[in-house]
C-alpha cells in the first residue's frame, strides 16, 4: 500500500511542479490560470489518494467535492476578472498589470 501511496504522491508532486513552473515563467493571464487549475488537480489527487490508502476514502471524497465546488467558484470569478482586465487594457499580458502600482 505504501508503494501505491508513493506513486500517487509522486505524480501529484509532478503536477504541482508543472503548475508552479508555468505560474513563475509565463505571461498570458489565461495560461497562468490554467496553471492554477493544474496545481489544484495535483492537490485533489493527493487528497483522494491519501484517503484511499488510509482507508478514509469517504471523508477524502467529500473533501474533494468541497474542493471542486470552491474551484468552480474561483474559476468563474477569475475568468470574469480576466475579461474585465482585457476590456480595460486590450491585452492579456500580465506585465501590463504592473502599471497598477501607486
Amino acid at each position: 500500500m505504501s508503494n501505491l501511496w508513493f506513486l500517487y504522491l509522486f505524480f501529484s508532486a509532478l503536477l504541482i511542479f508543472i503548475g508552479l513552473y508555468c505560474l513563475l515563467t509565463m505571461r498570458n493571464l489565461i495560461r497562468l490560470f490554467i496553471a492554477v487549475e493544474i496545481i489544484s488537480k495535483g492537490v485533489s489527487l493527493a487528497i483522494v489518494a491519501t484517503g484511499a490508502v488510509k482507508n478514509s476514502v469517504l471523508l477524502a471524497q467529500s473533501l474533494a467535492i468541497t474542493y471542486i465546488v470552491v474551484e468552480v467558484s474561483l474559476v468563474a470569478t477569475a475568468l470574469a476578472l480576466i475579461i474585465n482586465i482585457y476590456k480595460k487594457n486590450k491585452s492579456l499580458d500580465v506585465r501590463i498589470l504592473s502599471k497598477l502600482k501607486g
Partner: peptide
C-alpha cells in the same frame, strides 16, 4: 481509487463546465 462521486464531479464539473468557461 473507489471515489466515484468525486470522479463524477471531476468529469462533469471540471472537464465539462470549466472547459466551457475557458
Amino acid at each position: 481509487l473507489g471515489a466515484p462521486y468525486a470522479g463524477v464531479f471531476e468529469i462533469s464539473v471540471v472537464a465539462g463546465l470549466i472547459t466551457v468557461l475557458f
